[in-house]
Each structure stands twice: as C-alpha cells, then as structure tokens.
C-alpha cells in the first residue's frame, strides 16, 4: 500500500519545492508530459528523469526508505513496461526498453513530487483562486480526499475481521480476488456513509449557503513560480537538444 499511504494526504513539512505554488507545479507537469509523450528515445527521458531526481532533496525525499515507500509501484511499473517491450516486441532492443521504462518514471515522478510537497488544501486554494475552479467542487473533492487515510487504516481492520469470521483466501488466486473485492466493497460502503455525514457537517457550517466563499489563506504567485516553470522548459529543451545531437531523437507527433 506504499503509494496509497503516500496519498495519506496531510500537511507537508516545509520543503523548498513546497514553496512553489501548486499551479506552477501543475504547469511544469504539463510541459514534461507534453515533451515525454512525444518522444520515443532513451536520451530525452534520461535527461528529464535526471533533472527530476535532482529535485528529490528539495522535496524532502532524501531518506532512501521514504523514497522507496513513495516510488516502489512506479519503479515496478516502469521495469515491467521496459521488460515487456524488450521480451515481447520483436523489433525492440534493450535500449528501447530502457527508454520506455525511463519515460514512465519521467511521467510519473512529478505527481509523486507534487504529493510529497503540497498540502491538498493549498492545491484547492490555488486551483480555485488562480484557475477559477468551482469552490464547491474543489473543496468537496478535498473533503473526499481526506477520507483516504481513514480508509487505509480501516483496510487492515476489515481484513482481520474477515479472518476472525473464518474467511481467508490461502493461496487460491480466485479466492484472493474475491476476498479483496469484499474488503474493497466494505470500504466503499464506509466511505459513502462517511461522505454523506461529512456533507451534512459541511452544510451545517454553511458550505451550501450560496454566499460567495472567501479564502483565509490566499494563494500568491511569486517570481520563483515563473522561474520554476521556465526552468522546466529549459530542462526539456536541453533534453530534446541533446537527443537530437546524439542522433537518438525519435519524435511521435500526436494528434
């Protein structure tokens, strides 16, 4: 449950990357996504991933355990993509496999960085203030997100409760899938009930009053936010340039 635990979203400790406004981080993610999705070589993702790795300390992810906890599913996914392509595609070589694996890491890591550095409340603030997202939907989604850590805690109790009732899967994969399905359904029931109660509590505090909502924290854009996006663009340009110079450049034009 490592990555899901990392979504056990709460306030994040003050990190240098956390001082970048969430919408600037989202903008940067957009740039990276665009560049990586359109290139199918090994050099471009390698440069991008290297740059992203340089950001890890700024995101407070310097301890190996912390890093592993947040990235293992990502690394697993990347290596499986790489391996599957190497093993199964007739024309794909090892280099292509590595390139595809790196591309997956390069695309997914920014999300991990955003979660590690950004309190979801600040994200909602930024989205509603800068991108004019509906406050009711943004804060409604925020309330739902807050239930995730509660459900993670409940997962273990529900699993143990099933064993106490005489239900366990053993090694049978079908029984395992059924057991997991049952647990997930129990959690969904709990989440929907909690969500309904939460909605009541929010209404009782005037969430549905129709008065335009103010924001106590605000969300300011600084020069460093522009610099961050510009830096991201620069890294991407450098990545593509080095790819072209080494002759690896293999663009896929989408659309």
């Amino acid at each position: 449950m490592g990555a899901v635990t990392s979504l056990a979203l709460g306030p994040t400790a003050g990190t240098r990357l956390g001082r970048i406004n969430p919408v600037a981080q989202l903008g940067a993610i957009g740039v990276v996504t665009l560049v990586l999705l359109t290139s199918l070589d090994v050099v471009t993702p390698a440069v991008v991933v290297a740059a992203e790795l340089c950001l890890l300390p700024a995101a407070g992810l310097s301890s190996p355990w912390d890093l592993w906890r947040r990235t293992w599913p990502l690394l697993l996914g990347a290596s499986s993509v790489g391996l599957v392509n190497v093993l199964l595609s007739a024309d794909a070589g090892v280099i292509t496999g590595v390139g595809l694996g790196l591309r997956v890491v390069g695309l997914a890591l920014p999300g991990v960085l955003l979660v590690a550095t950004t309190d979801p409340v600040r994200l909602a603030d930024a989205l509603t203030l800068h991108w004019r997202m509906s406050t009711r939907f943004a804060f409604g989604a925020l309330a739902a997100l807050r239930l995730v850590p509660l459900l993670i805690g409940e997962f273990e109790s529900v699993r143990l409760a099933r064993r106490a009732r005489g239900v366990e899967a053993g090694r049978n994969p079908v029984a395992r899938a059924r057991l997991l399905g049952g647990i997930v359904f129990a959690l969904l029931v709990s989440a929907v009930r909690r969500g309904s109660r939460l909605a009541t509590a929010m209404d009782a505090r005037g969430f549905d009053s129709g008065i335009p909502r103010s924001n106590a924290r605000g969300s300011r854009l600084h020069r460093r936010d522009a610099a961050f996006v510009a830096g991201t663009v620069a890294v991407c340009v450098a990545a593509v340039t080095s790819s072209v110079l080494t002759g690896a450049w293999h663009p896929v034009f989408v659309g």
């Binding site: 990555a3 899901v4 979504l7 599913p73 009711r136 939907f137 409604g140 989604a141 309330a143 739902a144 997100l145 239930l147 995730v148 959690l187 969904l188 989440a191 929907v192 909690r194 969500g195 309904s196 939460l198 909605a199 009541t200 929010m202 209404d203 969430f207 549905d208």
Partner: peptide, 20 residues
C-alpha cells in the same frame, strides 16, 4: 447538493486508487 458533490468525489477518489 453538497452530499452529491462529496459522494461523487468519494467515488472519484476510490476509482483513482483503482486506476493506479
């Protein structure tokens, strides 16, 4: 209603984990 928003969001978040 608020409950519509929150419960739809609960489904969204739950399926987000499923997507992952």
């Amino acid at each position: 209603r608020t409950v519509d928003i929150v419960v739809a969001a609960v489904l969204g978040v739950a399926f987000g984990v499923v997507f992952w």
